[in-house]
Amino acid sequence: MNIKTIKKRIVLTGGPGGGKTTALDLIRREFEGQIATVPEAATMIFSGGIARSTVNSVLKTQQTAIYHLQKHLEDIQRATFPNSIVLCDRGSLDGLAYWPGSNDDYFQTMKTSLEEEFARYDAVIFFETAAKSGESIKSNNPIRNESEQAAVALDDKLQQIWSQHPNFNLVNSAESFIKKVMFGINTVEDVIASYK
């Protein structure tokens, strides 16, 4: 089978408070029937009764679970919707920004590499956290507990990781939310067009 005929994945990521989850829902509605969405694995775990931890050994166990759940959720959507683009709320490399050890330790633990994980995704859409523009990131999401300062630090780590992807698309925090969503829609359109 020609690699061009295999529809892959787009990851929508960025620091806390960037508008990813809301944008993902709007993009899904725009491309009804053409994309399948993957919910954020970490939110599923932490809203399901697992408490966040600051203990390194527990953090590593949690991030390992999130990594594997993320990949399984993506694979479920790929199998369920074989002819759709899979649009992910975060990707398999997001845990690297939360990992309390070295990058090498993360990849050894997950039995993977940066290149293998990048190959899973056709494109990365990165929404910078609103905290980078001095805006509040307070939300109704009880799982989010990061301060604005922590959100900026996580955003920097995530951007350093994902910006190495060959199809990295940065959406600056200063952009209006409507422009962010339109940028996401345009990127999805470009990926869909690349299969035609």
Rank of each mutant, 00 (worst) to 15 (best):
T187G: 04
K20C: 03
Q70N: 13
S57M: 08
Q70T: 13
V152Q: 05
F118V: 00
D75V: 04
F127Y: 12
A174G: 11
L158M: 15
S133D: 12
N103C: 10
N140T: 13
I27G: 04
A42W: 05
S147H: 03
A51G: 06
Q159I: 01
S173V: 04
I3Y: 12
K196H: 11
M182E: 14
T64Q: 13
T54M: 07
N56D: 15
A119D: 11
T129N: 08
G15M: 07
A174P: 00
L87S: 04
S136Y: 06
M44H: 06
A151V: 02
T112S: 15
P82C: 11
Q34F: 04
I192R: 10
I45P: 04
N83A: 07
K7Y: 05
Q149R: 10
D190M: 11
F183E: 08
I50C: 11
D94G: 06
E40G: 05
M44F: 06
N83C: 05
G184Q: 03
N140P: 02
Q164I: 01
I137M: 03
A41N: 06
I178L: 12
T37L: 05
V152R: 12
S163C: 11
A23F: 01
H72C: 10
I27D: 02
S136I: 02
D155Q: 07
H165E: 05
M1F: 12
N172M: 09
P82Q: 12
R90D: 04
P142S: 13
N140D: 15
V86Q: 00
D94Y: 06
D25E: 14
L59T: 12
Q77P: 04
E135R: 13
K196S: 13
N83T: 09
K8W: 02
W162K: 02
G48T: 09
N172F: 07
T109S: 13
A119G: 01
T37M: 00
E128I: 00
R90T: 09
L59M: 15
P16I: 06
N186S: 14
H72E: 14
T43P: 00
